[in-house]
Design a protein around this nucleic acid. Sequence first.
DNA 1: ATTACTAGGGCTCGAGTAA
DNA 2: TTTACTCGAGCCCTAGTAA
Lengths: 232, 232
Amino acid sequence: MPENSLDKLSRGERNRIYDGLKAILSLSNGEKRARLYSGSLALFMGISQQSASKLILDMNRTGVIIRHMDGKIQSIEVSELGRDLLFEEYSLLSGLLGVKDKIMISGVVQSGMGEGRYYVSRKPYVIQFQERLGFIPYMGTLNIKVDSSEEVSLRRIRGYSGIKIDGFATDDRTFGPVKAFMGTISGIKCAIIFPERSVYRDVIEIISEEFLREKLKLSDGEKVQLNVDVSN
Amino acid sequence: MPENSLDKLSRGERNRIYDGLKAILSLSNGEKRARLYSGSLALFMGISQQSASKLILDMNRTGVIIRHMDGKIQSIEVSELGRDLLFEEYSLLSGLLGVKDKIMISGVVQSGMGEGRYYVSRKPYVIQFQERLGFIPYMGTLNIKVDSSEEVSLRRIRGYSGIKIDGFATDDRTFGPVKAFMGTISGIKCAIIFPERSVYRDVIEIISEEFLREKLKLSDGEKVQLNVDVSN
DNA sequence: ATTACTAGGGCTCGAGTAA
DNA sequence: TTTACTCGAGCCCTAGTAA
């Protein structure tokens, strides 16, 4: 069972796993899964079969890959956690190297279940939205289902640390930390918000000072484009 | 004296240096040089001062940083070699993660000294251009001085491995390996060529089946835009 | 203050080898 | 065949400390 204990890993250990992930992606040839022997991985990485075997075990233990043993040959798939790790690294490098990242996301308007409204109207969130995003959002979210062709763009955004909105707890429950990215939709200032620790979803939630759905006269299924600023 | 012996480093050693470079860039705050104590670097990286000191020495030895000792405090600058290393990593990740890279470069036409013509007309090069790029280039290069605002884009391109053109030797001298990237300029197919091992230059050389300068009626100082395909 | 050398401990890696 | 365990060697990291 994965422990998601990536934070606790030593620098060396983390880099080892990081190299392993890159190697597995290289050997996947665009497929979702890579069918390989520990020996093939070893050859590719220039390490011994024993080390590659241990590396695969470690990667599986930390949950960055999902392994299926089909008899002798194993098929390995980079997990969501593993992908996130690599996209985080990518986004970090983007920032450090000064790559201008104007990421655009397009998708279609979707109706939410109203949970968005509930969350974004919690006072501790609202206070932070005002302080860190510079506006008090309309009490509701605009949900956008991102085009599947833009999955990579969305993952790239998620890879950035964004603007931190702290979590908090009430008597009954806890509200997790959130990260936000400023952007514009049809010229109107807005922000995308993500739960800090979440699995990849193709639906994103947008907040804005305006009631976007009304202001932009949007109805379900309508196509919209979003400009996202990831420079922090 | 730098040994440029990066290839000979072990995986662990290379990752250590890689982490050090990222840390130094993080601590530079956008400045060219970072003024820091080995202790500050240590704190930032979560390692001991001694390890940070050794890391700095190693990075200096391999030539990925340039160090100036101003008394006690040192100022550290990531060298061209170091930058190349990071951009290579960035480009590698781009490819592995499937980030669509349509890189555009703009600059102004410049007259070369005619050396471009000499190089690209050497037969072993020409044969490879035909085989690997799919065309026999016009015997000359179009030189473009890239806008300084697009330095990062150019470095990103250089970070990719591109299409390999092997070097060769004649009786008198050797011609180094070259890497090429397909692209278009005003809709006409072309390729950028770089010496495989070179320092960063803001002038790039374009080859094409056509005599671009004439076909596009270009004169010195004229602004042009280039679309580069880095997907290999 | 700093930087950085030297020793010792821990950890990673690979050879041998079992299953 | 393959995967993966054990254990010894070597390497890297840190503490102590000199300059």
